[in-house]
Amino acid sequence: MMSSVTLAADPVQHVINHAFVVNDDGVWLWSSAQTNMIITALIMLLGGLFVAKAVSTGQESEGHARWVTNNRFAHMIEVICGYLRENTVRPLLGERTNALMPFLWTIFFFILINNMLGLIPILDLQNIIAGKIAPEMVAEHKAFIGGTATQSIWVTGALAIASAIVINGAGIKELGLGGYIKHLTAEAPIFVWPIIIPIEILGTFIKPIALAIRLFANMTAGHILVAVLLGFAAQGFFKSDNPLLGFPVGVVSSLGVIAIYFLEIFVGFLQAFVFMFLTTVFISLLAHHGDHDHDHAHEGAAAHA
């Protein structure tokens, strides 16, 4: 059992996306990340409907209780939504907040739930079961479900494309097409335009690429670290020729895994927030030049994130 779960030679296998249906050309038609994302979508829709009902103001007959969100989970989501809207987005986007908030909330929770699903060892559990009933599936590294969808650069890239569309769409809506194009000059003197305009155009693409790579790299690195430490722990406990050496290694590695797991939970929240926050910052950068000084103040924050 352990050999299929934690003792794989390559810890990356525990992290990456796994194919489930592959066509003759080797193209993955369905993979574990896709199932994960469907689960994420279902969680968001069902959970969202539940939370929306709980957060909505009740009937007048309920008296003062109609203003209270009674469910703890709904209350938690309400607090997160309220914090993101009032403390994170509104200071940057002002009046545009209400229009853009649905997208920003959706992308935050979509990434967050995928990150959290990646921390549940569904893939390993599946491998244990598949090892019993369909060993060839494990041998071919196939999986129907599990892993971290946001570890896939294709997923993070897709989300970054969505962000890029919103960032530039909001910019064009705010500035007008002429203003948007003019913004590419950064109001620099004409003789600097040959340098500035390519940089600004590149920046338009680099921003979403940075979003995609940041999320992909954080999820990949963290999960590989967990997998490596789990591998060390398992080898220390079960495979070491010298128990006096293997046991302490197993203990230290196990403690390390627990610590890193907590760190990964934090990173899961943090990266979802960072993706949403940077999208907000990039939207705010494409504003009227009257706000430009204010906007550039956020570029430092974006660079640090």
Partner: peptide
């Protein structure tokens, strides 16, 4: 490996 995953995403 990733194209349809991205499209699905």
């Amino acid at each position: 490996e990733g194209f349809w995953t991205g499209v699905t995403a």
